[in-house]
Each structure stands twice: as structure tokens, then as C-alpha cells.
Design a protein around this nucleic acid. Structure first.
Lengths: 208, 208
DNA sequence: TTTGGATTCAAACAGCTGTTTAAAATAGCT
DNA sequence: AGCTATTTTAAACAGCTGTTTGAATCCAAA
């Protein structure tokens, strides 16, 4: 196992758990059993390490998402919103085979990135992986053409909020669910619950 | 203006903007034009200052929220979910008369608190202001009695996520909306957009 | 085996963090 | 005015932060 990967593996878990600002390089390097200076040697800076952690997941996820959402646009049949959002399930769960707890870790990282660091991750994702966003909005538009661009903008950001926020606190929520309802829930279970919710939200009657 | 209030006023703006961890006592005290030691003298610690900032808003908001949601429970008529969520509008907008940009600031603080500091704010709110949560879940149950406790738990947390996440990045989103759609949106406008979304999400068909 | 580039390492850097201290200043009361 | 309690102040505290340095080590090619 290379030093670079040892750092990435340790960093992603700590970042997901405690946020980017809340995790120090010393925590990361001692968890990775690597010298402190290794981060700056291999990645240049902490900010570049954060980008590298996110890139490793996005490079795995982006092509799957692009094709899954792209197929919906190619099909002549009009997709339902449930189908559009369900297109995320398989690519997201694929991250679990890519890495242990990969799905959960990635979604938590996404949540951290949106609130930490004053939106630099939003810039990073939208500029580095614009096709995912474009295909997604195109698929939603095909499913619900009456929605104006502005209404879609808001509803997609509401959706992003639902997903990202839920996932960034999913561990705590899953614990509560276990205590209060004696129900074992995993990340796939949460996704199954959240899809009808966001689909119905996006499909809500238009207010004017 | 007392030193205590000068600190609270400066702290809430900085906390909302940069998060609790991301704001230093030196930023707060220099913005408030008071001595650095004043925070520890008047509040004891940074953590207590955070609680004080949140309490000032919650003490203003909680009674209004409790009565607005309580009325829905007393009425014999079954409320719609739109009515339940609309019960939040007036109390929340009242914060704008309580302080400049009060609504936006409070909701951003709420968002920060849920992701920063590993959920200590969730504990703080649910233990210090349980009536708000109880009345809210009771009103939702009255509007949609078919929803099981577990399903309601998840959907209410999805809703919390939508609100909190949207509001914690509302300034950035409002800017984007201004650029892309030439549309001036204020916090009330965002609330008006988000209510149909969350109402439809909670009202989504049950999946089993 | 020797050379030279890549990697690791301990140590130190300057700057920031929340908190504490003891003296100085202020305010309120007799 | 004199005294007391409250508040403000500058300074220092120990501990943490990301980053840099230069020497030590490793390892493959010559």
C-alpha cells in the first residue's frame, strides 16, 4: 500500500466524520501511520489533499452517473421522477464495492464539502464534473417539462440539501432509528426512503 | 449597548457566515469592539457563547412556534400538510422584526449547528425546546395519520435537512438566482418555494 | 558498488486557537 | 469623598494548526 493511498484512506474517513476544517493533518498522518510531512510532500497542501479525496470518488462515480442519467434522456419514453432519482441508486451503491462503506463515506464527504470551506467544493464539483449536472437537469426536465428553469433550480437545490444533509448525519440518524424503532437501517435503506420523498418534492404542484 | 449584546450581535453574524469552528473569539471581539477576554468573562467559554446565541433566537421563536402548531392540534378540522408547514412562516419572519436579517441568520445558524460540532446542537435544541418538536410531530400526525412513527421520523429529518441546508447556503443560492434569472429573491421568497416541496415530500406515497 | 533521484524522517517554524491572570479602570452606593 | 463590587484591559499561557527544512534513508539504474 503506497503512502499516498494510506493518506487518502485515512483522510476520507476522518474528513467524513469530523469535517475538513475539523480534521488536522496530524490526525490523518498518525491514523495512516505515515510521517506528518508526507501530506505536503505528496499532495502539496491540505486543500489539494481534500480535492484528491473527492476526485478519487468522483472519478469512480461520474461515468456511471453520466451514463445512467444519459440513458433516460435517450429513451423516447418520458421517465417518471422516481425513475430519474432511482438512476442514482446503482452508481452510489457501487461505491460500496469500490471501498468499504464507500457510499456512506462519499455522501458524508459531499455534505461536509457543501457547508465547510464556504462553498469551494460546490465550485470544484460543478466545474470539474459538469456533465453529471447537465444530464441530471435534462432528465428532470424531460420528466417534468412544465417546471421552469428557475423553479427547477430551487427544487434541485432543495433535493441536494435533503440528500447531503441526511447523509452527512446519517450515522447519527441510523443510531436513533435503531434505538427508537429497533430497526436496523443501512445506507441503502435510507436511500430507499429518501427517493420517494425527493421525487414527490420535485413533483410538487407549481406555485405562482 | 451592553458588552454582552455587542458580543452576541457580532458572534451570530460570524457564526452564521463561517460556522462555529470557523470563527475565532478574536474575530468576534474585534468585530464587536470589545476586549478579547470579555467573552470568557461574560459567557464562561466559547461553547457557552454558542448556546447563548442560539438561546436568544429560540426564546423569541419557541413560544410563537408552539402556539402556531398547537392551534392546528386543537382545531377539530384535519389540517393539510401545507397548513402545518405554513405555520412556521409567521414565527420565522417575525425574527426579521426582532433583528435585521434575523430569519436568514437564525436559519443559517441552525444549519451550521447541525453539521458543526458533531450534533451537540441537536441535543441542545431537542432537550431545551422539546415542546416545539412534540407539537410539530403531533400536527404532522394529525395531517397524515397513515404515516408510521418510523416513516415520520425519516421524513421529518429529510425536511429538516432541506430547510437547514438550503438556508445555510441561502445567500449563495440567492446570488446565483439573481445572476441566472435576473430575479431578486429574499428569504421569504425561498420559504415560499420550499414549503410546497417539503409538504409534498412528507405527503409522498408510503413505500413498503 | 557507486551514483542520483525519490522518499521518509525528526525537528523546527510562525501563526493561530481558547483560556487565564493580575492589574487597571469604572461604576454604584453610603 | 471613600469604599466596594463589577467590568475592562494588556499580556501571557500552553496547545494546536499547516508548512518548511535539511539530513537520513531507500531503491533502482549504471
Amino acid at each position: 500500500m503506497s503512502t499516498k493511498n494510506k493518506i487518502l484512506d485515512a483522510a476520507e474517513v476522518l474528513f467524513a466524520d469530523k469535517g475538513f476544517n475539523g480534521t488536522s493533518l496530524r490526525e490523518i498522518t498518525s491514523q495512516a501511520e505515515v510521517n506528518l510531512a508526507a501530506v505536503n510532500y505528496h499532495f502539496g497542501s491540505k486543500k489539494e489533499l481534500i480535492k484528491a479525496v473527492m476526485s478519487r470518488y468522483m472519478n469512480e462515480l461520474a461515468p456511471l452517473l453520466e451514463s445512467a442519467l444519459g440513458e433516460l434522456c435517450i429513451d423516447e419514453a418520458k421517465p417518471s421522477l422516481i425513475e430519474v432519482f432511482s438512476a442514482f441508486i446503482e452508481p452510489l451503491l457501487h461505491l460500496n464495492t469500490f471501498k468499504n462503506n464507500g457510499t456512506s463515506t462519499f455522501l458524508q464527504l459531499l455534505g461536509r464539502g457543501y457547508t465547510d470551506s464556504q462553498g469551494f467544493l460546490r465550485w470544484f464539483l460543478t466545474t470539474q464534473y459538469p456533465n453529471v449536472f447537465d444530464n441530471f437537469t435534462a432528465a428532470v426536465h424531460k420528466a417534468y417539462p412544465e417546471l421552469s428553469a428557475e423553479e427547477m433550480f430551487w427544487r434541485l437545490h432543495f433535493t441536494m440539501g435533503t440528500i447531503v444533509f441526511t447523509m452527512s448525519s446519517s450515522d447519527a440518524l441510523i443510531d436513533i432509528a435503531l434505538n427508537d424503532f429497533d430497526r436496523e437501517v443501512d445506507i441503502a435503506g435510507v436511500i430507499k426512503q429518501v427517493i420517494p420523498y425527493v421525487a414527490a418534492g420535485v413533483a410538487a404542484p407549481i406555485v405562482r
